[in-house]
Design a protein around this nucleic acid. Structure first.
Lengths: 195, 195, 195, 195
DNA sequence: AATGAATGAGCATTCATTCAT
DNA sequence: CATGAATGAATGCTCATTCAT
């Protein structure tokens, strides 16, 4: 395989862009090659399949994501602060790897069925454990409401954060931290005004 | 074309199921035909293309959705009650047309580019107007918080509701109304406990 | 099969019209059925295949054509008068069976390869024999030029007559006899003015 | 697309042969590929559709034909000499591009309806203008007969020449020039012997 | 590293034909 | 006589992938 990791990364960034914009299935290898200024066949010097490009994009993203999540979880913060940190890291990740996040959102569901992408399921499980655990700790510590179905709450928070990748554009008027702040405020306090 | 609307509806329900499960592009006409217990070519007696099946699924769904939304909007409710009614209707619609909603979620973004699916854009605009308007009225009436970016709030509420279609299974343990109630409680009051 | 020959004839006339206008291959059974005001499948009550419709159209036409040609050939006319009579009958046939002639022109070449349409080859051979023989008799009798390749002359006369079916419209400003007269004049005397 | 014009030309010659022998519609892409010793899909590396092959075959032919016709028309010859030159060039063209001419004969009528092949109509109009004009000049100059319908004469001459493509085989016993000479003699002087 | 040309499997769609009603 | 619904084979075309150069 190619001895030049920089070229690979360039090409993967290009591929991720196209995957995110058009969907994995709808993206032809030729479109990626066009965007990279080369012929379709030439991509096979660098990668052994279209699927392996997708694989590398997603696994790189998840590896980085978990490095940050693990750091947060290891910090021993209180439940509310943990949620805040996780959400903030998530928006930062959307900012850094918008394409990968968008691809993950759209494709992970049916990819999990494939042997090769089983690690997506593992990640999802770890994810659920971390968030659900934090929420439960919060309920026990009486900082989160006890009258809500925790599983429903988990889905609510999880989706709320990640769907943002579908409209978020890096370099827009709000910084990821600002968006995280407002989203957290909504999730935690609600949008209704209190007297 | 075929004057038997019952068979069409049956076939459309089958098609919607497969589209929702595998994605429109990844769904081959043969898979739909298999699921319907017939040969691929036979579908063309009832529909003139795979795209027209998708079209019929989405437009039927949107027509029904707007019938209900319009009824809500015409009722002259207060902002908070309007939001509550819209969210509740949305969850009911997810319950009734889960597949169509899931398809809409996943495919509408790139479908809008096609002439034929321009009505999706129209619907989105009407949608934004209704929700955004209600939120703004609520801010003015001092029932919704004024310190949040309204556009961000709109996206938050919108996504929050519709993504549910990706995990919701009709006939599960929570009724659509119950889910709506909990979601509304989270969106309006937040998940943090108040002292 | 159907006991109503009148209905068959009607349907064959319709089929011939569509075959002539669009070509045999490009004509779908549905187009014929549409033109006849029925459904595609219903044609199979009257005919057992699309090919058998074509067969019946062509064989009917050839049978009638040969009835007339044979009458001419049996009349014992002089070579020039024979040619004149054959050409005139040909134009009359174009007038009566324009569609069949047009179909014959366009399709006979590749149809001959099919067992079922071998009679087209027989007809062509009989045709060549009659015309070529008459031309040769004319050369011997010194009423036709001897300095021309007879085979070339045969093709010239043959094509000259039949291609007319491609532009002739029954009921136009010239009667078949008038067209025959002018064509014969050109073929026999040439278009150059003599001093 | 492919920057190898030689391969394209080879493939187009193969395609033209099959189109001419079997008709455009009856020719499947697989048949062309078979004749070219490759798989059907491979043709799409060189051309973007079956129709575009046909287009290229016909437009190339017409371009060359008109180069020669225009040269003749620009030479300022007398009417009879113009007709002679045009007919001779036509037979030469049949000799060079037999397949293209045969395709043109058989398919142009229904192709003209397609936007893409509108240039066929333009060519036909130019064609009619050139031939009809020359014939009329000839009648005025008293070298062609005045007692014939000029339009009928035009069709007679036009068809007479081009139908030859249906039986002509390059490399046969007569050179194109020889065939042209005999045809011209028949068209101009007629086949009847004069005393 | 990249190109040019090809493969082969699969896809949406068409269409002649069948047949129970 | 005709319909409605289906079959199954074929068609034009796409696309991930291969490989000699």
């Amino acid at each position: 395989m190619s001895p030049s990791p920089e070229r690979r990364e360039e090409l993967l960034a290009t591929a991720a862009e196209v995957f995110a914009a058009q969907g994995y299935n709808a993206t032809t290898v030729r479109k990626i090659a066009d965007a990279a200024g080369m012929l379709a066949g030439s991509l096979y010097y660098h990668f052994d399949s279209k699927e392996s490009m997708l694989d590398e994009i997603l696994s790189t993203f998840l590896t980085e994501l978990w490095a940050r999540y693990d750091a947060v979880l290891a910090a021993g913060l209180a439940p509310r602060e943990t949620i805040e940190a996780l959400v903030t890291e998530s928006f930062r990740e959307i900012d850094r790897h918008r394409d990968a996040v968008a691809i993950y959102q759209k494709e992970s569901k049916h990819l999990v069925r494939l042997e090769r992408f089983h690690y997506l399921a593992d990640s999802q499980q770890k994810f659920e454990k971390a968030w659900l655990g934090t929420l439960e700790r919060g309920v026990a510590a009486e900082v989160f409401r006890a009258d809500l179905d925790v599983r429903l709450t988990y889905r609510f928070v999880r989706d709320t954060v990640w769907v943002a990748a579908s409209w978020y554009r890096p370099g827009g008027q709000h910084s990821p931290e600002e968006i995280a702040r407002q989203y957290l405020s909504m999730v935690l306090e609600g949008i209704a005004l209190r007297e």
